[in-house]
Amino acid sequence: MSAANAQVEFGAKVGFDLTNYWGEDVSHTLQPNYQAGLVMEYHAAPKFSVAPEVVFAAQGGKSDNLTFHANYVNVPVMLKYYVAPAFSIDFGPQVGFNVYSKVTPKDQDALDLGDMTNTVDFGLGLGATYNLTNNAFIQARYTMGLTKVYKDQSVDVMGYKLTTDNKAKNGNIQISFGMKF
């Protein structure tokens, strides 16, 4: 595909996520969440394209007594290699901007963790996209956070001492459906 024939596509996607925190001294289970956002794909060559996105994602983790909610506006830039005309392997960096961060102790009200949460999250994504039609697609992706979610602090959460000096990082398994316009 020459530069004159390069094609740009725009669209939207929604998805189901399983999120958790991972890292040293982190013991969290998967938590169901969601995502929704806008996508673009620039076909730079017959088998290669660049696909930036802007996605709102509910993320977090769950331990025995606490459920963490950390919502982000994520901006992944996926490099796509088409192994077949309708199927690509996707890899690329992601930067996330925290917009909401709370913890909910079991059977109690949520506590705001905004001041304890790092504002920016960097990660790497690996996945695949299958184009069902020219306009509809499905995606599967794992995004691994590379930066700590929380600043090194501790706070009393309704009688439970919460220490955020661990190495908790975001982990996100995504299954998405999207449409190109």
Rank of each mutant, 00 (worst) to 15 (best):
Y82G: 15
G23H: 03
K47H: 07
A168W: 13
M40L: 02
S88I: 05
Y100H: 15
D112G: 09
V55F: 06
Y72F: 04
H43Q: 12
D165Q: 07
F87Y: 10
T67D: 08
N71F: 07
A44M: 07
G159C: 10
K151L: 03
N33W: 05
Q94A: 10
V83N: 04
G114K: 08
F97P: 01
Y130W: 05
D112L: 10
Y34L: 09
G92D: 00
T147G: 14
T119L: 15
N134R: 12
N65Y: 13
M158A: 13
P105Y: 00
S154Q: 09
L30P: 00
S88D: 05
N74R: 11
L111Q: 02
H28M: 03
D64A: 14
V95Q: 09
S101K: 05
G123T: 11
T163R: 14
F56V: 10
L162E: 01
T117K: 13
V83A: 12
T143A: 06
L126I: 14
N74T: 15
Q139A: 08
V77M: 13
T119E: 14
S49Y: 04
F56N: 06
Q35S: 10
N65F: 14
F137G: 02
Y72C: 07
D121W: 04
P76V: 14
F68S: 04
Q94R: 04
G145P: 12
V39E: 09
F91S: 08
F48V: 14
V39W: 04
R141G: 06
G60A: 06
N65V: 13
K47D: 05
V77D: 02
F137M: 01
F68I: 02
A140K: 11
Q139I: 05
K169Y: 11
E41G: 03
G114W: 07
Y150E: 11
Q31C: 10
T143G: 05
M158K: 15
F56I: 07
G127F: 00
D112Y: 10
L126N: 04
G92Y: 15
V95G: 01
I138C: 03
A168C: 06
M116N: 01
N131E: 14
A57C: 09
N98T: 11
L124D: 12
P105I: 12
K106M: 11
L111V: 00
K169A: 13
H69G: 15
M78K: 02
F91K: 11
S154E: 09
F122C: 00
A168Q: 12
P93R: 03
I89S: 00
L132F: 13
Y100I: 07
K47G: 10
A86Y: 05
M78F: 01
L113C: 12
D109M: 01
D152A: 05
V77Q: 09
Q59V: 09
V99E: 09
Y82K: 09
N74G: 13
D25K: 13
S49V: 00
N134M: 12
